[in-house]
Every structure is written in structure tokens, then in C-alpha cells.
């Protein structure tokens, strides 16, 4: 966030975890299904992760969970995507933007997940999303540090 991209709208959520690993591993974990299905509630990802490309987060049953566009792809330092929850009929039409910043700090890697949107997101979505992100990021940390993700359950949407 110090590299000149000023935030016009302050973010809604900023989550940070420090992981004993390399930036490359964190990048791979965020962009490859072999990793995401272990720590991201069983979901896989589809994209070539190039700027301007579409990306999708796919549920274990094959339905699309989240879809969007890759806004910034600076491997292995920064990944920014738009985030539309596909199955929420009353979801806001304005995009939510998710940014992952990956920085080495000593022997650790600082992973910052920032969520911001211009839309007024109903609090129920924000709260559910927040609990999900805390689980996802701590499971990712566990996976990269110990080889095992955390057992967290999240029921598929009705």
C-alpha cells in the first residue's frame, strides 16, 4: 500500500497473517487449485492470472462461487481481483475488490488481504465474509507451515 496506489475509498477489511514460507509459495497457494482446495473450503480456482483475464472460484460440486477479473498480477508480490459472489441474488452489483499483498519480513512473509468496495454492503454479508476470511487465512498459514490445512467446514449455499 506504500507503493503509490492511493486508496480513494478506505478498505472495509484488512486482514494480515505472517507465514514462515516464501512469497512464491504464498502466490502459488493463492493461484493453484492443488492448494486452494485444501485451505479455501474445498474450492478450486480457474484463471491464467494475467492482468485483465477472468478468474473463478469453483465449489466442490462444480458451481461457480465467485467470479471476477484480474486487475493486478505482479507475481509474487501482489494480486488484485474483482469479486462477485455469483449465487447471491441480492448481492451488490458494484464489485468488491480483493487485494493480496505479499511481502517478505525477515524470515517470514506478511500476507495482507484487503477488501474494499464502493458499494454499501449489507452488514450480514460483511460479517459472514469476515469469519470466512479469518478461517481461510489461518488455514493457509497452517498449510504452508505444517503441510496440513485446518479442518474447517462451510456448508455450500442453499
Amino acid at each position: 500500500m506504500n507503493d503509490g496506489d492511493e486508496l480513494i475509498v478506505p478498505p472495509d477489511v484488512v486482514y494480515v497473517t505472517y507465514i514462515r514460507t516464501t512469497p512464491r509459495e504464498v502466490w502459488d497457494a493463492l493461484t493453484q487449485s492443488a492448494f486452494t482446495k485444501q485451505f479455501f473450503f474445498g474450492r478450486t480456482v480457474e484463471s491464467d492470472w494475467k492482468q485483465g483475464s477472468p478468474w473463478r472460484l469453483v465449489m466442490p460440486d462444480g458451481r461457480t462461487d465467485v467470479a471476477g477479473e484480474v486487475l493486478v498480477s505482479d507475481q509474487p508480490r501482489k494480486l488484485q481481483v474483482t469479486w462477485f459472489v455469483e449465487w447471491l441474488h441480492d448481492a451488490p452489483k458494484e464489485p468488491t475488490i480483493i487485494t493480496y499483498d505479499i511481502e517478505p519480513v525477515g524470515e517470514l512473509v506478511k500476507l495482507t488481504m484487503t477488501q474494499h468496495t464502493d458499494a454499501k454492503i449489507p452488514r450480514k454479508f460483511l460479517e459472514a465474509g469476515k469469519q470466512g476470511w479469518a478461517a481461510i487465512l489461518s488455514s493457509l498459514k497452517s498449510l504452508l507451515e505444517t503441510g496440513e490445512a485446518l479442518t474447517i467446514k462451510m456448508n455450500p449455499p442453499e
Binding site: 500500500m1 506504500n2 492511493e6 486508496l7 478506505p10 478498505p11 477489511v13 484488512v14 486482514y15 494480515v16 497473517t17 484487503t114 469476515k130 476470511w133 479469518a134 478461517a135 487465512l137 489461518s138 498459514k141 497452517s142
Partner: peptide, 18 residues
């Protein structure tokens, strides 16, 4: 998060979850 000269503070519950 820095916004200009303003430092904004955000609750980070990830360590508690860990």
C-alpha cells in the same frame, strides 16, 4: 493502512483464529 498522511486502524482477528 495509510491513506495519505492518515493512518487507519483495522481489527485483525486472524491471530485469534489461529
Amino acid at each position: 493502512v495509510w491513506r495519505g498522511r492518515e493512518k487507519l486502524h483495522y481489527l485483525n482477528p486472524v491471530p485469534i483464529h489461529e
